[in-house]
């Protein structure tokens, strides 16, 4: 029983960066932009979040953990949004190919993050770009006086770090936004049929820019999670290591639904840490490929079943040029 709970808790912790990446990409794809740069954007958000917390710590005498968390979130969001802004500028305004631009963004973002991570490390006295214990502990699990002490539920529900709850809130808010708000409806219209949306008076360009940049910001927070929580507040070369790509795949697994992304990221989080808890008798290195194998299985499965509500936004990946109707 204990090990099941531990597995679930670890799955939530491992699944949260995937969830944030997935949510960001869902919002992006709902506008019809297929941004394959999630990996790069997560890298950018990761290094920016770390840099924010790191330099805040050096600037003030007694850093506060809560402020550091807020700064890290803001920096990660801004940097992720900046990466997506490059993407939007190139694909929406300058009409470049979305696939290639996304890949270019991944190359750029990966280099950008490793570059600045190493610059930060090389300029510190210790040779590492790492935050101190105060800030590190701000990214550890919270303790709510009574709730966290409830036997099983306390650990399952009230023991995580603050970013986990943020991710869940974003997921629920996004689910509501897409389904029940007017802006969300407009956004879906743009992703499904930009011509019609344009004719209905929706500013297609602005919609795409906004959704892509906010989505990129959310992905950026996911990258920050990897650096501050998974790696413990220290820059590790190539730390995101494919999580952004899993997020792209999870969007398909979740069939463009933020609520289903919650389940999907939990499953994939569990797959990625399961070898520590369940032995299937296969070598570690092969165990590590399970999330990717699962993604392939999902991809194939989704392509078999063509249900209407499970389909991607109709105009996904196709650019919209008003003049070329």
């Amino acid at each position: 029983m204990d090990s099941v709970i531990n597995l679930l808790v670890a799955a939530v912790l491992a699944g949260t960066p995937l969830l944030l990446g997935t949510l960001g990409e869902i919002l992006t794809e709902k506008s019809g932009n297929l941004n394959l740069g999630v990996e790069g954007i997560m890298f950018m958000g990761g290094v920016a979040g770390l840099a924010g917390a790191y330099y805040y710590e050096r600037l003030v005498q007694s850093p506060s953990g809560a402020v550091a968390v807020l700064i890290a979130i803001a920096c990660a969001f801004a940097c992720g949004a900046f990466g997506s802004l490059i993407f939007s500028l190139l694909t929406v305004t300058l009409r470049a190919n979305q696939n290639v631009t996304g890949l270019a963004l991944t190359i750029f973002g990966t280099g950008f993050a490793n570059f600045f991570g190493e610059v930060m490390a090389s300029r510190s006295e210790s040779g590492y770009a790492a935050v101190g214990d105060v800030i590190k502990s701000a990214f550890l699990g919270i303790r709510i006086p009574v709730l966290s002490d409830i036997p099983v539920l306390g650990k399952l529900l009230f023991s995580y770090n603050i970013l986990v709850y943020l991710a869940v809130v974003i997921a629920l808010a996004m689910a509501w936004f897409l389904k029940h708000s007017r802006k969300g409806l407009c956004l879906r219209a743009v992703g499904e049929n930009p011509q019609t949306a344009d004719a209905a008076g929706i500013n297609v360009t602005r919609c795409k820019y906004a959704a892509t940049c906010i989505g990129g910001g959310i992905c950026g927070i996911g990258g920050m999670y990897v650096v501050m929580v998974t790696c413990g507040g220290i820059w590790v070369h190539n730390c995101v290591d494919g999580k952004g790509w899993i997020a792209v795949a999870l969007v398909i697994f979740a069939m463009w639904s933020p609520a289903r992304a919650l389940i999907g990221s939990l499953v994939f989080g569990a797959l990625s840490i399961m070898r520590l808890y369940v032995s299937l008798g296969i070598p570690t290195q092969l165990y590590d490929t399970l999330p990717y194998v699962a993604t392939v299985v999902v991809l194939i499965f989704v392509s078999f079943k063509h249900r209407r509500e499970n389909q991607p936004p109709a105009a996904l990946g196709t650019p919209y040029f008003r003049e070329e109707r």
């Binding site: 490059i86 500028l89 190139l90 300058l94 470049a96 190919n97 290639v100 631009t101 270019a104 963004l105 190359i107 750029f108 973002g109 990966t110 280099g111 950008f112 490793n114 570059f115 190493e118």
Partner: peptide, 16 residues
Amino acid sequence: SAAEVLTGIILFFMLG
């Protein structure tokens, strides 16, 4: 990693 950053920048300009 500057190589990747520069590659990315070149790509952005060329795509644009």
